[in-house]
């Protein structure tokens, strides 16, 4: 059985003047522990789809099942990482990481210890009492990752989390995050407009067509690359070949 099932999702944005169909009949499945990327031209409803999977938006039609059960009946939360870190500037780093347990009234000593371990694991343990504005963009995004992982989300959703970072930081962070996600056997869905990032990080890429957003094509990333870290994957000869395939497909959608 699939871990995450997205079934016949359609979504309509309504306003008083008109309506726009953002998504149409989207269905796909994600296996436990796998990493899926959603790519597509801008305005294809990638972020809308992610918000629906997260349960933040109620779709007009269709449903999202997690381990066969509808999303609404689940108590465990879904991790959500945004384009920017959105750390609370008035909270220290450790308090930012602990915001989830704090909201869920689950702030035990063992959770606190785990938060410290997580911060150490991603290499920013010494900043725990600093405030977010004292940290660089890459460090802040790492804190945001720790904040998301601390609550043990069944599913991690990433909405272009690297897009606001410079290239070097982005490459480093891709490696770090993928390594951690693999360690935790985390099931993840990434939204990105960066083909290279999608190839380097995921097992499977779902290409969305625009207006209304629907699935154009699903690619399975070649095995040789999946095993590698994102940085090494980018160096592999298969990578560039596969990049061309995806590029052509995406380009043909944008030409229309």
């Amino acid at each position: 059985m699939a871990f995450l099932t997205v079934k016949d999702i359609s979504h309509l944005y309504l306003s008083e003047k008109n309506y726009t169909k953002a998504l149409e009949d989207i269905s796909f499945e994600v296996k436990k522990g796998s990493f899926v990327s959603l790519i597509g031209p801008s305005g294809c409803g990638k972020t809308t789809l992610l918000s629906i999977i997260a349960g933040l938006i109620e779709p007009t039609d269709g449903e999202v099942l997690l381990e066969g059960k509808p999303l609404k009946t689940q108590d465990s939360n879904i991790g959500y990482m945004l384009q920017q870190d959105y750390l609370f500037p008035w909270k220290t780093i450790i308090d930012n990481v602990l915001i989830g347990p704090h909201i869920q009234k689950n702030l035990t000593q063992s959770v606190k210890d785990k938060a410290m371990e997580l911060l150490d694991e991603i290499g920013i343990g010494q900043t725990k009492d600093s405030y977010p504005d004292q940290l660089s963009g890459g460090m802040r995004q790492r804190v945001a990752l720790a904040r998301t992982l601390i609550t043990d989300p069944k599913l991690l959703l990433l909405d272009e989390p690297f897009s606001a970072l410079d290239y070097q930081t982005k490459l480093k962070l891709e490696n770090l995050i993928l390594e951690i996600l693999r360690n935790y056997e985390q099931t993840s869905v990434l939204v990105t407009h960066d083909i290279g990032e999608a190839i380097a990080m995921s097992d499977r890429i779902i290409l969305l067509d625009t207006a209304p957003g629907k699935i154009a094509k699903i690619f399975d990333v070649p095995k040789e690359i999946v095993e590698l870290s994102p940085f090494d994957a980018r160096q592999d000869p298969v990578y560039s070949e596969f990049f061309q395939t995806v590029w052509k497909e995406l380009d043909s959608l944008e030409q229309k």
Binding site: A54, L56, N77, I78, G79, Y80, L82, Q84, Y86, F88, I99, G100, H102, I103, Q104, R147, T148, T151
Partner: peptide, 21 residues
């Protein structure tokens, strides 16, 4: 910023918690 609210909602925060945090 609505995204702060999005972060809190992803942890299933209620309206009172969103206001306070």
């Amino acid at each position: 910023d609505k995204n702060y609210i999005k972060v809190l909602k992803s942890f299933k925060a209620n309206r009172r918690q969103i206001f306070k945090e």
